[in-house]
Design a protein around this nucleic acid. Structure first.
Lengths: 185, 185
DNA sequence: ACCTGAACACCGTTCAAGT
DNA sequence: ACCTGAACACCGTTCAAGT
């Protein structure tokens, strides 16, 4: 024991806390307790909680693959959106975390930049690119948020959970389909 | 002074606090101070903060007009979405408030029910109705959230604010257009 | 019935002082 | 350079006791 406290260990433990207990329990104090240090020690390695959440977002989206450069942009966009959704779906309150991170540092995570780049390649007029990127991102985050709110409202136990996860995934696909159909029109 | 503390006064003061200082300053303790009572007194009239936010949402969306019964559903949907957006755009953190309210009580506010009813009337297959309603709502809330995050990131002062508000409104219209085009397809 | 007083179990952040 | 100890200024919620 008595390992050195590093930025990496702090971020990794934060991700772990989020995965296991959700954002309400991802507090600086709880994090410090988990790492066996005083709360103030964290502030030597991390400026504040927001900066930490940006880092956590990077880890959460780190596994999302880059879109193939030669793929059809609309197809690739659908795939990327689904991949981001999948990466966040099982992490409690992930949409809120990403929302905060995106607010303080919009271009932080690579999948989010890839998404904007794909929209570009679909041939949307320059003036509308940001709007379309935002639409897709909001759909992803909104979908994640909603399915998790439902899960927690249902008590996070019992028969309904699996069915809800499936129907949420289907609802996401339907919505994405509407967007893509609109894009082609 | 020494007016009776009622549920209505509590909600009205909460809305006022939200409008003026945002969600971070809409705390039960601050609310109690504003009303010249002890924090515990609020809990006689209101079960908890979540219930209060549901009530606040109702007030915020109270001014949104009902869609005309004879209007074209897609047109009416566009109008209603824009009206909801306008009602929330000037209230700090309104998207988060509505988000919480929608999470704990999905059918609470009438405009949100009207929105679902309009989607129904557009002729979307029954299995996809909820998904489309959610898509529209997420777009509205996402748009509100983003424009406000940008405003606060820009320091909430200076020249950029008005331009941002306009571009956010335009981005909202573009996104809505994509959704409606997708719906007609 | 309605409210006070006081507590319980927390927060994020700062910063002198130690090593 | 890195961490402790201790504080500052807060939270939401509960509940005996008063009126």
């Amino acid at each position: 024991v008595d390992v050195a406290l590093t930025r990496e260990r702090i971020v990794a433990t934060a991700v772990d806390l989020l995965r296991r207990y959700g954002l309400a329990d991802l507090t600086m104090r709880r994090l410090a307790r988990e790492l066996d240090v005083q709360p103030g020690a964290l502030y030597w390695h991390v400026a504040n909680k927001q900066e930490l959440l940006v880092e956590v977002t990077d880890v959460l989206l780190g596994q999302v693959p880059r879109p193939a450069a030669d793929a059809d942009p609309v197809e690739a966009l659908a795939g990327l959106a689904a991949a981001v959704r999948d990466a966040l779906a099982r992490v409690p309150d992930a949409a809120d975390v990403v929302g905060v991170a995106y607010a303080v540092e919009p271009g932080s995570s690579r999948p989010l930049r890839d998404l904007a780049a794909l929209v570009r390649r679909t041939g949307v007029p320059a003036a509308e690119r940001d709007a379309v990127s935002e639409l897709v991102l909001h759909h992803v985050l909104g979908s994640v948020r909603l399915s998790q709110e439902r899960a927690s409202a249902a008590g996070a136990v019992g028969e309904g959970v699996v069915a809800d996860a499936e129907s949420a995934a289907k609802a996401f696909e339907v919505g994405l389909g509407v967007i893509l159909a609109g894009l082609r029109a």
